[in-house]
Design a protein around this nucleic acid. Structure first.
Length: 493
RNA sequence: GCUCCGUUGGUGUAGUCCGGCCAAUCAUCUUGCCCUCUCACGGCAAGGACCAGGGUUCAAAUCCCUGACGGAGCACCA
């Protein structure tokens, strides 16, 4: 029995083993977003994977907002909480939440330390000047400054005595390092634009990512870092700081970029924001936007996304996430609970009913759960079907849950309720709605809105409920009240 | 230009460290059939990949070399 359980557990672990996990008492990882907007699908990968690792290793993870650039990557104040909600939506809870903009004094103290150790110098070269020297392996004239001068100038940076661009603090690495990306990088610079957070609005001297993140990873006990290949030189840069302080660098995993298919909109926070500002998207949760608020509104469960992300693994090459995988996961989660309804899309055609047909139709609420009973649809005098489903004149069609009809021009003549017409004679089964009482419904999809008509009982569904429009797909009920049309968000087939 | 890194079917992934059990795993996907008053769910079947070329070896997806292709960094962005 024990053996079986342990085997099962092994099967459950899809992610590759964490490097040197056994050397740490407790695994602790971090998710370090920049709060400059809500998350898109790609952002879900980090909490999905480190949250899963935390579960597998009985460890924990933290969220740390790396909000150290009030200007070019200006944080949005509401994005902090929004992102935390998205982590929750994905089904995870961080052990701690930090904001780098709360921690400036900590970074300053470490910078002072570093200066005393001779590991940093203030530099007033222009970016271009320095870049030229650096690329030819030459030290700039400021490199040999004594620690006292550097310290005084660094304090002046903190005190706001320089304008943006006038002075930076560089970490002294190896000016002749064969990889030019590692040579004497900037640790602190001046930004004139105040930080949007009240708590941080007075600061002008801001650490760069490599300094801030390097210090914080150590101070917050991070044992394993996952980051993108765009940051593959970061560990090597930060290693110089760690060496000055005598710290051990955490384990690092680099992964490639993730792309998501299906969407017409590029997956980038700035692109999405522009489209919203231009009015092309209704907001961050527009179904056409590849964002987490959007997929949540469509009724995709966080778990479906997490499973798909975890399956992507942590390879260093770029990967494409097929939304079909997410949909497949989600279908499995929701199918059992999703009641069935009819929904006739544009273009539609109406037919007058003729003959001795029953007044009501009684299709099952869910084909696999008879106990949930049937819907009762009063057919009225006319039914509405999709143009694509209209049979040739004179041919029969089976209105699902209702009965067989033969088309005669613009009328449907009742042709009985003998199911053998379907089973043995090949009559097609289609969905339909009563034309006069159907519920006008806007179905919002990833490729734009679609108008249609739901059966009357759809009015009684509750907001947030997942239902299946038979032969159309699964949707999340969004709203019945706001306008004269009901609104549903299309999830997937 | 300099410096890193990668390349298994449409997509993702296992296997690569320690060469043979790999004529390559699993999922998704596509197609067909079955089930069915849904094109959902379920069942069955099929399709589809080791970037290329050399080398080492009895044996290479796995080791070595070269090349091609792709990605990333060389920011006072994260």
């Amino acid at each position: 029995m024990e053996e079986i359980e342990s085997e099962d557990e092994e099967d459950d672990q899809i992610l590759p083993d964490l490097p040197n996990a056994e050397e740490y008492d407790e695994i602790r990882m971090r998710c370090a977003p920049n709060p400059n907007g809500p998350w898109h699908m790609g952002h879900a990968r980090m909490p999905a994977v480190i949250g899963t690792y935390a579960e597998e290793y009985d460890g924990e993870f933290i969220v740390r907002f790396d909000d150290t650039d009030p200007e070019t990557k200006r944080p949005l104040l509401w994005a902090y909480d929004e992102i935390l909600e998205e982590v929750e939506y994905l089904g995870f809870e961080p052990a701690d939440v930090y904001r780098a903009s709360d921690r400036l004094e900590i970074y300053y103290d470490h910078a002072r330390d570093l200066i005393e150790k001779g590991g940093a110098y203030t530099c007033s070269c222009s970016g271009e000047e320095f870049s030229d020297m650096k690329n030819s392996g030459e030290a700039c004239p400021h490199r040999d400054k004594d620690a006292e001068t550097t310290m005084a100038e660094f304090e002046a940076m903190i005190d706001g005595e320089y304008d943006s661009g006038e002075m930076v603090l560089r970490v002294k690495t190896d000016i002749e390092h064969k990889n030019p990306a590692l040579r004497d990088w900037v640790g602190f610079r001046i930004i004139d634009t105040p930080h949007p957070r009240e708590e941080a609005e007075e600061y002008r001297c801001w650490p760069m990512l490599d300094f801030q993140s390097g210090v914080d990873d150590h101070l917050t006990g991070v044992t394993h870092i996952i980051r993108g290949i765009d940051l593959q030189d970061s560990a090597k840069r930060q290693q110089f700081v760690y060496d000055y302080f005598g710290w051990e660098y955490p384990e690092v995993i680099h992964w490639g970029h993730v792309q998501v298919d299906e969407y017409d909109v590029k997956m980038s926070t700035s692109t999405i924001r522009e489209l919203i500002e231009d009015g092309e998207l209704d907001g961050w949760d527009d179904p056409r936007a590849p964002t987490l608020p959007s997929v949540e509104r469509r009724g995709i469960r966080g778990e479906a996304i997490v499973d798909a992300m975890v399956e992507l693994g942590t390879s260093t090459s770029n990967v494409d996430l097929a939304m079909s995988t997410v949909y497949s996961n989600n279908r499995e989660l929701i199918d059992d609970d999703a009641d069935r309804y009819f929904f006739v899309r544009e273009d539609h055609v109406d037919f007058t009913l003729a003959g001795d047909h029953p007044e009501e139709a009684h299709p099952p609420v869910h084909p696999e759960h008879e106990d949930r009973g049937t819907r009762d649809i009063d057919a009225g005098n006319r039914v509405r079907v999709e143009a694509e489903d209209v049979p040739e004149d004179g041919e029969r069609i089976w209105l699902k849950g209702f009965g067989c009809f033969r088309r005669d021009g613009e009328t449907f003549e009742y042709a009985g309720d003998d199911i053998s017409a379907v089973r043995d004679e090949g009559v097609d089964v289609i969905h339909w709605v009563p034309a006069d009482t159907a519920v006008l419904t806007r179905m919002r999809t990833i490729h734009g809105d679609q108008i249609g008509y739901a059966e009357p009982g759809f009015r009684d569904t509750e907001e947030d409920e997942m239902v299946q429009f038979e032969r159309v797909g699964f949707v999340r009920v969004d709203d019945h009240e706001e306008s004269d049309e009901s609104v549903a968000y299309f999830a997937h087939e």
